[in-house]
Design a protein around this nucleic acid. Structure first.
Lengths: 414, 414
DNA sequence: TTGATTAATTCAAATATTTTGATTAATTTA
DNA sequence: TAAATTAATCAAAATATTTGAATTAATCAA
């Protein structure tokens, strides 16, 4: 898979480069795009012409500054395409329909309790269809459906593309061909991703990651997950579980129920487990709104939980710092914003006590842009990312040009 | 830095793809190269013609199998180019001159004691010149000089390209323009790299990494370092210190002298510190040969040291497994081979006790191909890598096409 | 008001590289 | 010995970018 390239591939790549430049820095004039991409103005004219014909971009106002002909600004057409994201976890489903700029147009939330794979397929299908109906958009304009599932996955054959999944967090699921089932039922391209990676991709494409190329994303879902973005590209690891820090061993057990398993970090951040502990203390908390309310009351037990969480997270954050050396570490997902912020503050005081002082800069610890629906927005960006991002693999003559295809795939003897 | 591409870039990339295909799988016929790269036979003919003219490849024997015209096999010409690697550490210098196939032609070893930057510049210059004289090769055929220094580096301005360095491990060094000084004195391109990254690049280019795209390299030098290879590309991290696990905090202090610093893993694996401990126990050991001899005697104290080392390394190896998820973790550098092997065996028994059982495959723990001179061979490959590797950045219209340039560089507002 | 200047965009031709189709050469097979 | 097969190459076609000139639309200065 060490393949050459040609003009044809060059073109499709340049189209995406132009599109991405407009998306990130637009509205921009053709000449300005040429200046930034080092393409010629003529090439940009050619490319933008076809992009306008396909409705992906539109001309905006003229910009008059100084002498000469005023430039015509180009911008992404939000209605140029749509995408659907469905984030499924042990205890809930969030579905969103977004436009080309990532703006949510429709959203559906649902409480669940460990759905079986058959139940889940029906729920996912119906939610997608309901979103499309509500927005009243024709099927051709929808680029695809991204589906988020809780990682890690048990990958039986080492396949990088996870079409058939066995999510460890969803009991009873075993080698479910999610992609095949739903793409057939919905007549749309379907992409599967673990929700931590999805949240990271969302942050990369629409959030602060637009201007940060290398970051780690710590995702609070039903448990604890992680996603890695390296040089502007999602990084999945050899088995597809890179960044999965939920099962990192901990020194003490956190969860009485799950004492069959060795103690690990994900146990601590399991929301149902936190609710149960709070209920044992006499606080009636069973959802995020109530949790945030309790936090606003500066509840002692909750404060202690956050402090303890930061203490347990710190060594792993340090390992991320030393091993991955990212520009930033984002924290996001299904915890109330103020609680994440508090956790970050506490981490920021703990980390310096652990570090051996020698570097001049350390990764920023940041609260992720999208809130509780981060994963849903994240998976919704995958079809868009797949169609729009200037993936380096596009320049090579390989048949698979997925966002999951590697820059230089593992070399195999032929 | 989101740049387009064109035919010119396409060509230089295809040239490297052909070269790399021959290097990895050669000798190969033109048609076979075409089949593997998805280029046409005609294109391969054109490219190989110019590669033969520049002396990088040569025709080998004809291969007669079955009907049709026998194919003419092509292979890398070892004498097509040479490269020099100089690995400097706190206590030694290793210099090698290698040919295009990475075969060492000349080697120089030297014991040192914390050389000042001025002393080091002289030693490096003289060693390079001596290597060239001994081999008797003309300067034009030498693609460059790679210089390995102990990481981590203090990067004052966040520059990714480390032309001016302040290695923390070499006291007295401060913002030394190593690249400028030595490229002037030697009239050759000079590349700087920390020796763990260099060893990893060496393993990638000439070792087992030829067929493993994503791996971590744990490097035993004067202290403990690490290098990361992701999808066949060296990964450096945002500050250039990715994989630097030497300063990861440890639970107990290992080194009485350095008790001013907080305890960290690098202290444990410091060779001088081990020698001192052994001497305190009454064993006269002060170099690698004597250390290996002691190991062959199954010395109790040394065995205990290895066991303890494995115990302290295990949680970090697990973090690599969870965060980076590589196909393999290599262990190499300046520890005798049998000791590394022993350490690996012990790690392999400790790790399963730490893991929460849920994955079907784990990274292979492997002894690196090159021995004590891994870092020197590694830095020697950098000029070759820079000239030959099909770096994805080559396809983009950026001025800097170094092996350190990113696939999709950090996006900056213009 | 008008012509000169400036800058954005586009048309048309040139350029460079890959691809396509045909040709030549070398070997095996019947 | 002729047909079949495969490797390698020649020559022409195809395709995208680049180059250079032309067009368009604004400002500036007399």
């Amino acid at each position: 898979m060490l393949t050459g390239t040609n003009l044809e591939y060059t073109k499709s790549y340049n189209v995406r480069i132009v599109l991405e430049t407009i998306r990130l820095y637009g509205p921009l004039s053709r000449v300005e795009i040429a200046r930034r991409t080092y393409l010629t103005a003529q090439t940009v004219t050619n490319i933008t012409r076809s992009l306008m014909q396909s409705g992906m971009i539109v001309e905006a106002e003229r910009l008059q500054e100084g002498r000469g002909a005023p430039s015509i600004l180009l911008k992404i057409n939000p209605e140029g395409a749509y995408s659907i994201g469905l984030d499924l976890d042990k205890d809930h489903l969030t579905g969103v329909l977004v436009d080309l700029l990532g703006t949510p147009r429709q959203q559906i939330d649902m409480e669940l309790k460990f759905p079986s794979s058959d139940e889940a397929m029906d729920i996912l299908e119906n939610t997608a269809k309901e979103l499309i109906t509500r927005e009243g958009v024709e099927l051709e304009k929808i680029w695809g459906v991204g589906i988020g599932l809780p990682g890690p996955f048990s990958v039986s054959d080492g396949a990088v593309l996870k079409d058939v999944v066995t999510p460890i967090g969803l009991p009873g699921w075993s080698n479910v061909p999610v992609r095949e089932i739903l793409s057939k039922r919905l007549s749309l391209p379907v992409f599967l991703e673990n929700n931590a990676n999805a949240a990271a991709i969302g942050e990369l494409w629409y959030g602060a990651g637009r201007h940060i190329g290398t970051f780690f994303y710590v995702y609070f879902g039903a448990g604890l997950g992680g996603g890695v973005i390296i040089n502007g590209q999602p990084y999945f690891g050899y088995t597809g579980n890179a960044g999965e820090l939920g099962y990192y061993p901990a020194s003490e057990p956190f969860d009485q129920e799950q004492n069959s398993q060795k103690p690990h970090l994900g146990q601590f951040f399991r929301l149902p487990s936190l609710y149960k502990k709070l209920q044992a203390e006499g606080y009636e908390v069973s959802n995020l709104v109530e949790l945030e309310k309790l936090y606003e009351q500066k509840n002692d037990f909750l404060m202690g939980w956050i402090e303890k969480g930061a203490t347990h997270l710190a060594p792993l954050v340090l390992a991320i710092e030393y091993l991955v050396d990212p520009q930033a570490i984002f924290f996001g997902g299904r915890l109330p914003d103020p609680i994440i912020n508090d956790l970050l503050e506490k981490l920021k005081t703990i980390l310096p006590t652990l570090r051996i002082k020698e570097k001049t800069s350390y990764p920023d610890l940041l609260n992720a842009a999208a809130g509780a629906e981060a994963a849903a927005l994240g998976v919704a960006t995958i079809p868009v990312y797949e169609s729009m991002a200037p993936l380096p693999g596009l320049l090579m003559k390989t048949s698979k040009n997925s966002y999951r295809s590697l820059v230089r795939p593992v070399i195999s003897e032929m």
